[in-house]
Design a binder for these strands. Structure first.
Length: 488
RNA sequence: GGCGCUGUGGCCGAGUGGCUAGGCAGAGCUCUGCAAAAGCUCGUACAGCGGUUCGAAUCCGCUCGGCGCCUCCA
């Protein structure tokens, strides 16, 4: 099915066609690993996961998906420095080797990050590669040199800066946003690193080494420039190395449009002579309880915070899919709970489908294939998950499983399997056998006594025992014959 | 200040000028000793004002509110 996507570059929805017919190449801006991923991060990573799955399942493409990990920047340096408050005992002892410290620090958060991704159904197997910036230093240095050689960068005190004003004479600077240069150049940009720049608008490609910080040797035109890569250069270099230029789709959060992505475009064009991609897809921000998520407001949540509260991370995944990725989303606990219930309703329906009896009243399977094309059409249309799932619920409402003819069964199962290749929040299989709950003896006994009391129409005693059982953490529910005990 | 986004029923959230998305909550009914669970039924909302139009949540203008980027935050 033809996929349509909103392109931030052209500001419209356009039909998507990969450059190479047999494989879509896609790059996503990943995390800086100095902390646990928060909910906003999860949204920014669930977006490309959804996208690559839709490309595979609905578009029928193979996908080569790369998401970078920024492991060298001010934050990771600060976090791994001697005496850092964010150094975790599990990282081991700090050594005298600052680079060693950096890697121990980032390794810890990379592992945590991958765990978090897996928890919300972003599988490691979905990626072609998750490159760390520090593994591609030579490629970055090569790109920096190319830009210098092309005349669009200059060295100043051991750092290398991109020369925006000379670039503007050669090409456009401001593809993704409209830059007001009058305002821009006079801007109050304070360079806290005390580096000199020709203009406030120039950005750093390579940062000269500072005492006590990790660095890599580098020489530019005879000048010694030992230091570390700037943030933007990482992506430009790794894209070229792992995907080749130009590739098909670049994703990231809206906040990265400027300066990060704009600078990426400028660097790649200046150094490689090619724009990285012609399709930029951005996800909007996540807000919490109607306000921007921030530590000071006390509404800042990592995925781990929620898991600690007993939240099923798959409910988080489902919740993120309930709104369009291009609109801001308001995270609330009520909404999370609603998502959990909605998700379970579909799950129950899937279980029920497995139990469809020999009902041969109908033979028309068209409705299932119509459901499939309706749902997939929405997903193909710029990933409209909200409308897609609405069709599923409409179907469920119109077709209670008890009235479904047996001939629909295999088609429904095939549909839900396909859908779950994208959503990945359900179990496609028969309802699991009633787990033998590890119900304590005394609860079993109380339940049995209650049942006897009930049979003897001693309802007061029955209710009293039910209260006692729920105090113990279990719920007893009556069936036509007998009862079941569930954990609360 | 510059650039841009946004305001939908109790909550979340789709909506391409005309055909009352969907979910959750809530209410009623059925079932039940009572509950729970389940099933059935029920919601005509689009910030305000004005305009364009046969017709506006949707287009235009203004007002009010919220938000983002311009600060190495997804």
């Amino acid at each position: 099915m033809q996929i349509h996507l909103y392109n931030s570059l052209t500001r419209q929805v356009e039909p998507f066609t990969p450059i190479d017919a047999d494989e879509v190449r896609m790059y996503s801006c990943g995390p800086t690993v100095y902390n646990y991923a928060h909910l906003g991060n999860m949204r920014a990573f669930l977006f490309p996961d959804l996208l690559q799955r839709v490309l595979k399942v609905v578009g029928g493409y193979k996908v080569r998906w790369v998401m970078n990990i920024t492991d060298i920047d001010d934050n990771t340096i600060r976090g791994s420095a001697q005496g850092s408050a964010s150094w975790h005992p599990a990282m081991g002892e700090q050594t005298d080797d600052v680079k060693q410290n950096l890697f121990r620090y980032t390794d810890y958060f990379i592992k945590a990050f991958v765990q978090d991704l897996e928890a919300v159904g972003i599988r490691r197997s979905g990626f072609y590669e998750m490159p760390c910036a520090t593994d591609y230093i030579p490629q970055m240095q090569d790109l920096v040199k190319r830009i210098v050689d092309a005349g669009f960068a200059y060295v100043r005190n051991g750092s290398v800066y991109f020369d925006v004003s000379s670039w503007r004479q050669a090409d456009t600077y401001g593809h993704l946003i409209t830059i007001d240069f009058e305002n821009f150049q006079e801007g109050v940009r304070i360079d806290s690193d005390l580096y000199e720049r020709d203009q406030a608008s120039d950005f750093v490609l390579w940062k000269g080494r500072k005492p006590g910080e990790p660095y890599w040797e580098f020489e530019v035109n005879g000048e010694q420039c030992d230091g570390r890569p700037g943030w933007h250069i990482e992506c430009s270099a790794m894209e070229a190395e792992l995907l080749g230029l130009p590739f098909d789709i670049h994703t990231g959060g809206v906040d990265l449009k400027f300066p990060h992505h704009e600078d990426e475009i400028a660097q790649s064009k200046a150094g490689y002579g090619v724009a990285p991609t012609h399709m930029w897809c951005h996800n909007e921000f996540l807000e919490v309880e109607g306000e921007k998520m921030s530590k000071s407001l006390g509404n800042f949540f990592t995925l781990r915070d929620l898991i600690d509260k007993g939240v099923d991370p798959l409910d988080v995944r489902y919740l993120m899919f309930s709104a369009h990725f291009s609109s801001r989303m308001n995270f609330t606990f009520a909404g999370l709970e609603a998502s959990g219930k909605a998700r379970m309703r579909v799950q129950e329906y899937i279980y029920d489908v497995y139990e469809i009896g020999n009902n041969n009243d109908g033979d028309d399977v068209l409705e299932v294939s119509e459901l499939r094309s309706r749902v997939f059409r929405e997903l193909a249309d710029n990933l409209n998950t909200a409308r897609a799932i609405a069709h599923v619920f409409t179907f469920i409402n119109e077709h209670p499983v008890t009235g479904i003819p047996h001939v629909w069964r295999s088609d429904l199962l095939r549909f839900f399997t396909e859908l779950n290749d994208i959503y990945d929040v359900w179990t496609i299989g028969p309802r699991p056998a009633e787990e033998e709950l590890l119900v304590p003896e005394d609860v079993l006994l109380m339940a049995e006594r209650r049942f006897e009391a009930k049979k003897g129409r001693n309802f007061a005693e029955a209710d009293r025992l039910r209260d006692e059982i729920s105090t113990a953490g279990y719920a007893v529910k009556d069936l036509k014959e007998g009862y079941v005990i569930e954990k609360l």
